[in-house]
Design a protein around this nucleic acid. Sequence first.
DNA 1: TACAATT
Length: 491
Amino acid sequence: MYIKMATLANGQPDNTSLSSNHSNPSTNGHMNGLNHSPGNPSTIPMKDHDAIKLFIGQIPRNLDEKDLKPLFEEFGKIYELTVLKDRFTGMHKGCAFLTYCERESALKAQSALHEQKTLPGMNRPIQVKPADSESRGDRKLFVGMLNKQQSEDDVRRLFEAFGNIEECTILRGPDGNSKGCAFVKYSSHAEAQAAINALHGSQTMPGASSSLVVKFADTDKERTMRRMQQMAGQMGMFNPMAIQFGAYGAYAQALMQQQAAIMASVAQGGYLNPMAAFAAAQMQQMAALNMNGLAAAPMTPTSGGSTPPGITAPAVPSIPSPIGVNGFTGLPPQANGQPAAEAVFANGIHPYPAQSPTAADPLQQAYAGVQQYAAAYPAAYGQISQAFPQPPPMIPQQQREGPEGCNLFIYHLPQEFGDAELMQMFLPFGNVISSKVFVDRATNQSKCFGFVSFDNPASAQAAIQAMNGFQIGMKRLKVQLKRPKDANRPY
DNA sequence: TACAATT
């Protein structure tokens, strides 16, 4: 048996597959025999050239073609009616394609039936509308950066000037709250394009972080690509280091990550040491820089060489609160407080090319960095190596907000900080379930604030205690609990 | 530069 498999953009199977009659090889291929008079082959039904194929949804699974036929025949002669079946199991999928011989019949059926009645056993009303395969080109828009208070009607009002709106849906979360975006479907591509031209970037809704986004919705292909990319990202593929340096790169990277994880673990094991967090972040960043060969370029600033590039800026962290800095027994005595940072940087970790002139080979350089880093903290290294012979792999984050009281709002982040750096910085205080630096959609630049979520409030509090006021460069971090959603409600 | 990720 060969069944053509095709899926339309909205997931509706193409009507060229799955017809109920493929068990009957004698049936004329593109017709399902509803109008066949076996005794009279001359009455092969004809359809209008502009006939519309309808998609019928919300059909009870116990109804097949012969049960449905009477319901639809009342609007005109049926050319083809096909209940969709699962391609493997043959199970009724609760929907069908219907083509009348005349276009007019389809329009009548649509207006009489679409969402007008609910068939027995169904929760939602029957759907009768042109199948997606009927659509001529892109006409569905994705609308972003809406105000979350805006309703379907508000969006319709905004878009109706540009054409006939067939569908308008606000995307909502499970709680029914708007996600600030919507789909708007016009009757034609031209209308959709007109709306894009007129509305995209035209205004900024109150409460939106940038101007209105109006673009064609993703095609099926784009959606698939996006999913694949997300998957790949989660599995650590597409990693520039691995691509660039193959097995060696992966090895060096593993070393770096292990070191970073160790540092984080040290601090996590009860020693709340922002320095460890910061050093860990430095290491990761350095690995990235070095392995990409970026640091090998002359990035030393023109003025006196005291301002390093990127996040490695003289982030001699100052610690506003003494919390935790005493417990780090593996550190040399002078490692408490600011001098430690200097020591670390002076110890070869620090990536200024001017001060590592011989480290031309990025791999060597990265490895040397690890060695020296370890040498700086011999006790801690040995100790932790035993405790965590195989540091747990960093699980890529997927989760979003944590429970109330676990989510931090962090402001005055260095411009260069991304999600990963933010996470590294807060790992020492507990289990970070998500970290997000807010990025301007237009410029892709960090807005210098972000969110970190822990899985428990105590970690969040510890992070606030230790990191609020933490100085990086010329700025001091502001670390607060994220404002709860229902804050500032006057009643 | 100020409070969550949009298909």
